[in-house]
């Protein structure tokens, strides 16, 4: 469904992506792991067209993303940003229901609000939170509101940039289950970035490891433990010694 072919992206002299090749099938949950600053977020944003790669091809359903009709293309996606990216001028429920209050999915405010509250409940937030402003929430709560916003319009492709960082272990478990549920029940295609190995095992069908600007290893989550790949081994066991340098 989503295919990246030889994608390159540099910011000035900082070569971030140096030939990324990756394929994600429909209804599959792909988890991307890799060191901090290796370009995982950049890769996600490239697929959405928020960052323009220097070269290479990105296709969704066989169609080049540059040629797709932008509005229809974006309507299929939901995205949780690493920093939440909530609109701080709007109360929580309007953040979650943003898409349901304007454009082609527009519906009455009362209905949008109900859906927002239901989505908030799914990410473990009480209805009282709905009328607060994002600045009144804790970091982990903001993250979950961002998650609720990403899934509010029930998109067919969902990107999660570190959905569980900043959450307590129980809440992280709830979110992992939710993501799994969205993939299995709604048949969505998901691409998740995470550093949390528990999350990887809970969410992933497949895992891809990004390092040095390329996908160093990719395969089913079951093969992760005996891949024999020194980079992957070092990463999943969190060892300081190995081929990946600690200072990057």
């Amino acid at each position: 469904m989503i295919t990246l072919t030889d994608v390159h992206k540099a910011f000035g002299s900082n070569k971030v992506l140096q030939g990324v090749n990756l394929h994600i099938a429909r209804g599959e949950s792909m988890v991307i792991i890799g060191g901090s600053g290796t370009g995982k977020s950049v890769a996600l944003k490239s697929v959405l067209g928020l960052i323009k790669p220097d070269s290479g091809k990105i296709e969704v359903d066989g169609q080049d993303i540059d040629r797709a009709e932008r509005d229809a293309f974006l309507a299929r996606f939901g995205m949780l940003f690493q920093g939440g990216a909530l609109f701080d001028s709007l109360p929580v429920w309007q953040n979650v229901a943003f898409r349901l209050m304007r454009g082609s999915l527009k519906r009455p405010n009362s209905e949008a609000r109900e859906i927002a509250i239901e989505k908030l409940r799914r990410v473990g937030l009480k209805p009282e939170v709905a009328d607060l402003f994002p600045s009144e929430l804790s970091g982990g709560m903001q993250k979950r509101v961002g998650l609720a916003r990403a899934i509010a319009a029930e998109p067919e492709i969902i990107f999660f940039d570190e959905p569980t960082t900043g959450l307590d272990p129980i809440m992280a478990g709830v979110i992992n289950e939710l993501i799994r549920e969205i993939v299995v029940e709604m048949g969505a295609t998901a691409m998740t970035i995470t550093h949390d190995m528990t999350s990887v095992r809970a969410i992933a069908d497949k895992v891809a490891m990004l390092h040095d600007g390329v996908i160093k290893w990719t395969g089913p989550v079951a093969d992760m433990d005996d891949s024999g790949d020194p980079y992957l081994d070092q990463f999943i066991h969190g060892r300081a010694e190995g081929p990946i340098e600690a200072v990057r």
Binding site: K45, L50, L74, A75, M79, A85, F98, R149
Partner: peptide
């Protein structure tokens, strides 16, 4: 990233 978020929300 709120501007990026706007874009992703069509």
């Amino acid at each position: 990233e709120q501007i990026d978020a706007l874009v992703t929300l069509s």
